[in-house]
Design a protein around this nucleic acid. Sequence first.
RNA 1: GCGCCUAUAGCUCAGCGGACAGAGCAUCGGUCUUCGGAACCGAGGGUCGUGGGUUCGAAUCCCUCUAGGCGCGCCA
Length: 557
Amino acid sequence: MSGILRLRHALIKLLTEAVSEAQQQGKLPAVTLPEVLLEHPRYAEHGDYACSLALKLARTTGLVPLAIAKDIVGLITPPPEISQIAVAPPGFINFMLKDNWLASQVEEILAAGDGYGSIDMGRGSWVQVEFVSVNPTGPLHVGHGRGGVLGSTLANVLASAGYKVETEYYLNDAGSQIDAFQRTLYARYQQGLGTDAEMPADGYLGSYMVDLASEIIAQEKDSFLKLPEDEAVPALGRVGLAKMVTQIKAALEQLGVKFDVWFSEQSLYDKGQYDKAMARLSQGGYISQREGAVWFGATALGEDKANVVVRGDGSPTYFASDIAYHYNKFVERKFDTVINIWGADHQGHVPRMKAVIAALDINPERLKVIISQLVTLRRGDELIRVSKRSGDIITLSEVIDEVGRDACRFFFLARSADSQMDFDLELAKKQSEDNPVYYVQYAHARIASILRLAEERGIDFSGGDVSLLTTEPELSLIRKALLLPEIVEVVATTLEPHHLAYYAQDLATVFHSFYKQCRVVSEDEVLSQARLKLVKATQIVLARTLHLMGMTAPERM
RNA sequence: GCGCCUAUAGCUCAGCGGACAGAGCAUCGGUCUUCGGAACCGAGGGUCGUGGGUUCGAAUCCCUCUAGGCGCGCCA
């Protein structure tokens, strides 16, 4: 664990102990302690950390907050990293860090290198992040890109936070939508070969299906026409599906998203997962038969109504698959925590799935579902339809071609998953000059350039004395750089990757400001060496932040 | 009708129980211009959707209402 995080936890412990000591001495009534939180005050004069514990204790004890704060502070022996503990009205306890301790932390960043920002909160706990998981019945669009960026970033952060992480794409290669896909493809295939064929009523109308058919015709000619229809449809379908999956993988790779596991829905049935899961649920009395269908009902577990698992015609619903899938995740593969990232249109599915988990006798807390709100694509004022079924779409791949991968990722990461967003292609391109993406990356390139200069001049700063870093711009930069482990902790706790994007911008801002005020490579060799160490440390932190976001940290731009 | 998400500066969004509500863009004004000006500094701009409530303290928690998005299938 980094020094800064260790210190944070130490301060919380000191505060906690001081309160119980005060209680033993009778200075404070024996009320239960509220959670001790340390925050970073907005204003520098309030110190590096602030605690409102005394304010909170005032409520339960009926005492004056300022007096409580003074009592608590009186019982704390300040650790060596702290220069001052102050009590400020109406009852805040503020901690100031020692400048020379701050400066010494530059060495810690340097020593940690690329590993700076890694923490051990996960303690090797096993986490699965499942995301995108789009039906392979059409190309990916921007909305899927948001899920991909969210998921891959979260996986990066969780791994850095000490979790054992596995990413997964759940491939719906079974079910009625695949069926419709196959029949659509067959129709397009026939049409492509000059045969009159009618599109299925529930077919996919997009022109990409026509392209897919002609691609197959180019390779396989009319070979599928020679088979009887009931053989041709699935055979052709398999070929089409494979091509679709390849396309999806390529688009994701363009976005910098890779999966450890591609999990087949069909395999749940082939490998008996479905039967095992259903047997368990039946044992628990959660399965019933009615109106010719099989239902899952768990009103006792908070579900308001029952849902069909097996249709009247004997075919399982997607809900059946999801039951088996989650049984597999928790029971067979034994993930400690499973994170699913779903689009807003799946929101209603969350309570149902939690009920299933509970019915399997698994703590539903272990399933975390992140709902990412919908993305609408627009070009200026023109809205672009994204419905796969009804027509043509702009694919994710086209968007990345147009906007670029880094910009695309940053754009998605710059807002919380909770808020809907418009992805305006015109704006994304027009803004590319003063886009925050470039602002952040520019900071990194600038640093690289300084280090290059130092190297050209043959400056060896390995012996630099960081205690020479004492001015405000230098210390501000150090403070900001030292925040990374905390950001990792926050993101891993809240599962909200957008904090990274804001942090990256903040760090870049503080660096640019430092750069303006402090000449790094100068006549003063000793100071130059110290500042080069700081610059190098900043580069490490900035690069790590960018990499966590799945972005590049360019040496030049 | 019910459920979930959203409403904060002109625009796009952070902040989600604490000390004077922030950033980017846009607008206006300035800087240095020997390490990358894709930079820096400053200014203006906000009844935090509405109305109640809880609290020493609310943008933040609870309730009402309004507006927008998404759901509420033997689709996924």
